[in-house]
């Protein structure tokens, strides 16, 4: 008996295999940074069941267009509209919540001092985006299709095109940082970061889908990416239920 489990967590345990382990030999930089001791299981307290709430104080509600620079210049590349819903595992919308996104430019270069990739920077593209979900948990932003880029993990290693997302949700328990990928990317089967998650359906949910409804004629391709944050058990009756 574990006396640390005084109360069960009101948040569901992650479904087996749907989250990456910390240590993956194929992802070289995890080898000296992943914890080797087992995590210590605790009963979450108010400290973990609460968390910072970001909304209208941080960002003005409205559209987020990353393709226009402050001086009015247009970013290079294929314009895309990324949209989706932020939901919990039961499908309830998570409203008025901040999403932080960042990405490489169309040539696969980040506006960052450590990015040494020999590809051009775009003076009209910072790769930074901040957007709020609306009352139905929906978000959308306009950007350019990020390029793939090489990295030093192994010989001839290239990251599939991706956009980084950071979301808090309502509690420390629900914090999520992830990456959104694009359908049909030939690099996905070879990417150690994408492939570190055992559950193939969970991996495939990181791939956005092309969407005609949000594709704007003569202008912008639409991609849809829904995000699910860890949810609470619906009722006390469900506690300990195996919902795999």
């Amino acid at each position: 008996m574990n006396e640390c489990q005084t109360y069960p967590s009101p948040f569901r345990k992650h479904k087996q295999g749907t989250q990456p382990d910390h240590l993956h030999a194929g992802y070289v930089s995890s080898m000296k940074r992943a914890p080797l001791q087992p995590l210590v299981t605790i009963t979450p307290t108010l400290s973990e069941l609460t968390g910072p709430l970001f909304g209208r104080d941080e960002i003005v509600a409205g559209e987020c267009n990353m393709t226009r620079s402050a001086n009015g210049g247009e970013a290079q590349g294929q314009r895309i509209a990324v949209s989706g819903r932020l939901l919990d595992e039961g499908g309830a919308p998570i409203r008025n919540t901040l999403l932080e996104v960042w990405q490489a430019n169309a040539a696969g270069r980040y506006l960052h001092k450590w990015d040494q990739h020999d590809a051009p920077l775009d003076p009209n593209f910072s790769g930074e985006g901040h957007v709020l979900t609306d009352d139905l948990g929906r978000y959308s932003f306009v950007t350019v299709q990020p390029g793939s880029y090489p990295w030093g993990n192994h010989h001839n290693a290239w990251r599939p095109a991706h956009i980084h997302f950071s979301v808090f949700g309502p509690a420390v328990c629900t914090r999520l940082v992830t990456q959104m990928y694009f359908p049909g990317d030939p690099l996905l089967p070879f990417d150690p970061i994408y492939n570190c998650t055992a559950d193939s359906a969970a991996r495939e949910r990181l791939i956005s889908r092309f969407d005609w409804n949000t594709t704007i004629p003569q202008s912008t391709l639409g991609f849809v990416f829904d995000i699910h944050l860890r949810g609470r058990y619906a009722t006390p009756m469900e506690e300990g239920h195996d919902d795999h």
Binding site: E89, W114, H164, S166, L176, I193, D199, R205
Partner: peptide, 19 residues
């Protein structure tokens, strides 16, 4: 009820300061 497991984590990578 429809149940969709929480989205998979991915590393923040080295360039997180942008976002």
């Amino acid at each position: 009820k429809p149940f969709m497991p929480a989205t998979t984590w991915q590393t923040v990578g080295p360039f997180f300061s942008i976002g």
